[in-house]
């Protein structure tokens, strides 16, 4: 495609050269898979657009404010400090022990919670774009995942400051958090596909998801340490939010999670991904009509 002011410019090599949608023989399972995979492939090839969109989202949220995105860091810091001192007393534990745990927990949980709540609007928020251009739906998934990673990047500062201030030892086990975090990104993308599509069709789902997440926050050992359960920890592996949180949090606190926790986290993630893919196969071509 050429820019008119420079008519000599060569067409961009990667520009899309048309498309084919062939439903003469119906839309079978193979055709659905092929189109969904091509959606993902085109979405990945537009990664620059997804990154720009996510960065503009954050800029937009803090446009006109003096501190800008640093508010993300600051509000998390205030929250951690306030809750840390109060709950350390409530739980009869020392600040030194509790505050680093809480800082890490809260920051990681806010990533999960924001990811899930954004997932519900992954397609409805992009109504304008979806209706005016042919854009792969996976692009919006990329936008949401990238946006939440950027936000997490701001909040990580709080963890670092707390860990340094309390001289929390970090050992090599922390490396185990890296593959676990990659699993988070996959889960985040799957959740955005699943909830984005479901919420575009059924507008009652976001409030349901919201209340589930609120309950999950209290039962999933975010604020309290699993050992506060005094021997009843084994029940926690049935809570997907707990195990998925734990596989990143545990290593950063120096402990490798149990095998059960890994099995649970991987199992629940696999179920989520399968559901998301099947839903996407089924509804991808209908989303434009729903929003």
């Amino acid at each position: 495609m050429n820019v008119i002011s420079d008519p000599q410019a060569a067409p961009l090599p990667e520009a899309e050269r048309g498309f084919t949608i062939d439903l003469r023989h119906g839309l079978g399972f193979v055709a659905r898979n092929r189109m969904a995979i091509s959606d993902i492939a085109r979405g990945l090839s537009l990664w620059r657009l997804a990154l720009t969109l996510s960065w503009l989202d954050i800029r937009l949220r803090y446009r006109g404010s003096v501190l800008g995105p640093l508010w993300l860091t600051l509000s998390t810091a205030v929250m951690v400090a306030a809750l840390g001192f109060l709950y350390a007393v409530l739980f009869h534990t020392t600040i030194r022990d509790y505050l680093p745990f809480l800082a890490l927990s809260l920051v990681l949980w806010s990533f999960i919670a924001a990811m899930v709540s954004d997932a519900c609007t992954s397609f409805t928020q992009a109504e304008n774009m979806i209706r005016s251009m042919r854009i792969p739906f996976s692009l919006y998934i990329g936008q949401i995942v990238a946006r939440n990673v950027l936000i997490l990047g701001h909040n990580v500062i709080v963890i670092v400051v707390v860990f340094v201030a309390f001289q929390v030892p970090v050992n090599l086990n922390a490396l185990a958090a890296i593959p676990a975090f990659l699993l988070w990104l996959v889960d985040g993308a799957a959740a955005s596909l699943l909830f984005g599509a479901l919420c575009a069709r059924f507008r009652d789902i976001p409030p349901i998801v919201g209340s589930v997440m609120q309950i999950a926050f209290y039962v999933s050992a975010v604020m309290w340490k699993p050992d506060f359960l005094h021997g009843h920890q084994s029940f926690l592996v049935y809570d997907p939010f707990y195990t998925i949180l734990q596989i990143v949090r545990g290593p950063l606190l120096g402990q490798i999670p149990t095998m059960h926790a890994y099995i649970s986290a991987l199992g629940f993630s696999a179920v989520l991904c399968i559901f998301a893919w099947l839903t996407f196969l089924r509804v991808r071509h209908r989303i434009a009509f729903w929003i």
């Binding site: 495609m1 050269r17 949608i21």
Partner: peptide, 18 residues
């Protein structure tokens, strides 16, 4: 390519601006 059909075939060759 914004609305996908329920039946039939649409084929576009070439760069497109709508």
């Amino acid at each position: 390519g914004v609305y996908e059909p329920v039946a039939g075939r649409v084929r576009i060759e070439g760069t497109l601006n709508a």
